[in-house]
Amino acid sequence: MTRMAAEQRHRIRFTLNGEAVDRACEPRMLLTDFLRHEIGATGTHVGCEHGVCGACTVNVDGRPARACLTLTLQVEGSEVRTVESLADRQGRLGLLQSAFRRHHALQCGFCTPGILMSLDALFARRANADEAEIRDVLTGHLCRCTGYAPIVRAALEAAAELRGETNREAVDA
């Protein structure tokens, strides 16, 4: 039996945005705090810390997850993806991020990383997701700026682009 004592740091290994993480943390450390304070990946935001606002949503083993409701030790051996994975190494915005920019789907941007990761997970599973499904996923997020309409428009356009129905490269270039 592996019992990990409260006051000690314990080894934790997982994959973060394709790169191996091999660190240590206390049992009570939330994944949000581990990402932000131990790794320095501050793209994942911390809002309500009880799973309601959605700002901390990341991707664990291909599914969206609240990082504030996840203990770091629970993701041992998992593949974790955060908003930092969406842009390429040159910092060019990903397809979904570009659609958000075009449609003004963010104002303060606090909720945006979580929304992007939820939609990214949705489109990875359901490239044909329609507006109802998009809105259903968005119920898991609070945005106090946009009124959601531009977010839905951006998501619909990104979905169409992912299906190859439009090509925005010329516009973005």
């Binding site: 592996t2 990990m4 004592a5 409260a6 314990h10 009570r28 030790l73």
Partner: peptide
Amino acid sequence: MKPAAFDYVR
């Protein structure tokens, strides 16, 4: 809001 300390058994 952070949890109080606890031991963890996997």
